[in-house]
Every structure is written in C-alpha cells, then in structure tokens.
Simulated assay, not measured.
Amino acid sequence: MRYGMNPHQAAVMTPVDRAPFTVVSGEPSYINVLDALTGWQLVREAASTFGVPAAASYKHVSPAGAALGGSVVEAYTRARDVDPKSSYGDFVAVSHPVDAELAAVLKRVVSDGIIAPGYDDGVVEILAAKKRGTYLVLQADPGFEPPAEEVREIYGLRLTQERDALPLTRDLLDDGVPDDAARDLLLGLIVARYTQSNTVVMVKDGAAIGIGAGQQSRVDCTRLAGEKAQLWWSRRSGEPLTGVSMVSDGALPFTDNVEEAHRHGVTHIAEPGGSIRSPELAAACAALGITWSATGVRLFRH
C-alpha cells in the first residue's frame, strides 16, 4: 500500500483468506481500500436486489451519490450527478463490467480509482493513463464471500461482531407503500447500510438524490440530505420537488425530522421505529400525507 490514513503512516494489506479484489493498475492507499470495499458491497447488494446495474460515487467511506440504471454508464452518470461537487476526486464502484462508454465518461472526470467485476478490452489502458498513470483500477471477485465476523483493532482492543448481512426486503415496509416508492426505500436502506452514521438518505426514481452522512444530530442529517436533494432537483425542474422517499439508519427521535422531510418533498419514510416518540412520528406523518414504515432494523455504520 502507498500509505495509511495519512501519508506519514505506513500500512500493509493482508488478506484474511483470499483477497476480495486484484489490483489491475496503480497502488492503493488505506482509504482507497475502505472506499473500494464499502462501495463494492453497496453496488453488489443493490444490483442483486433489483436486477439492474448499480453504481456509487464514494468519498471518505460514504457515498456522495448512488443510483440504479439501465446500463452501467447510466447508473454511474446518475450517481455522480447527485452531488458533483462532493464527487470530485471520488472512488467509483460499479456492479457490472466497465465498457468503453463508461471509460469515456471516467476519462473526462476527476476521480481517484474504480472497482468493478471486470473490464472490456482496451478499457484498462484508458483508465490506467489517468492521473499521470496513477489511477487505481481494482477488479472485484464477484464470487468472494466475506467472513461471518468482522474484526477491528483499535488502541489495544480487538472488537469482533457479526457482519451486517440482514436481508433488506419488501416486507420491512408498510403494505400501503406503492411499488415505485418501495423500490426507492429499499435502495435507501441499502445505501444507508454502507454510509457513515448518522445517516439520512433521500431517494427518487432509483437514485439517492440527497445523503446526509456522519452528522451527530439526526435532524441535521435530514436537513443536509434535503438541501442536496433540492439542489439536484433545481438543475432539472422549476416545479416543486415531490415524491421523495426517505430512509433513516437510526430511529427518528423527534417530529422535527418529519417536518423537515416534508419541506423537501418527502412522501414516504422508512426508519427503525421503536422510539418512545414513534407514535408521535406516525401521527405527524399521517397528518402530512407521508407513509411511515417502522422497519425494526437499525443500520448504523462506524
């Protein structure tokens, strides 16, 4: 590895059993690996769930954008277009092999690297030439299955937990949620699973259009996600933003989250529920015409 979290930290990468990817070109840093493996898990799960290509644009172990598409280039273009300012210098994750069309897009944008399950002929040469020949190209092993336990060592302690592999399925959502909104809520749950907590994800038409990540206050997550969603929408339409689905990785503690979500066109919310104020949240959603799904599933990631 080039270095650890920072250039003054040496780092080594050691497979537990077998490596989940091969280095095709370039040399990874510690953060490159974190972005690559987190992004790959997101797009792999999304593509498996929905049966279409998925892409994510990662920065500092959280996605700036994530989306589904009819092709791999459409998925990535939609993902990067969510928050292009934050996607500057991103690490790309795509669920399907990279073709010449996607390579042509990546050639034009500022990006640090990519992970994908394969590359069409001639594509690696195009990508490897980026960043004066230092662009990182990783090939994921689609058949790799991670260990059932995750281990982290920090300051002399070893922490071990089960890997978060709980299925995220339609039956977590309220029966009254329409199919399109259910797709968006499920995509939001997948995105939240691979985003630094606290996290709120707003989704519309198969794209995570606003991600509020890593905030200590839940309502700040909601506000940040909503502002990003509004900015995304303003580039497309002069009409009010509506039909947005919102996911929270943790229980919404107060109704201010619902009110803030409503300001940004949210009509469907999925969150763990189980809070002492959940009845108040359900009532606030009903009063504002928002469907509310208490999934019973928390998706914290640290």
Rank of each mutant, 00 (worst) to 15 (best):
Q161Y: 04
T134Y: 07
T49L: 12
C221K: 02
V124P: 03
S48N: 03
E149I: 04
I211G: 01
A64L: 08
L186D: 01
V247S: 00
D174T: 13
V297P: 03
E162G: 11
A79Q: 04
P146G: 04
P142G: 13
A207S: 15
P272S: 01
E227T: 12
R263G: 07
A287N: 04
L187W: 07
Q9N: 14
S293F: 05
G133Q: 09
A100P: 02
A286C: 04
A284E: 13
V266K: 00
R78W: 08
T160I: 15
D220F: 09
A103I: 04
Q9W: 06
G39R: 06
R183K: 08
R152D: 13
S278Y: 15
G122T: 06
L136K: 03
R218F: 13
Y119Q: 03
D184S: 02
K204T: 08
P142N: 14
E162L: 09
G188Y: 01
G226K: 09
H264F: 15
L37N: 05
R277P: 02
A165G: 15
V105I: 09
C285V: 12
R236V: 09
V151W: 10
S293C: 02
H302C: 11
N257H: 01
F91T: 02
D249R: 12
G156C: 07
L102Q: 02
A213Y: 10
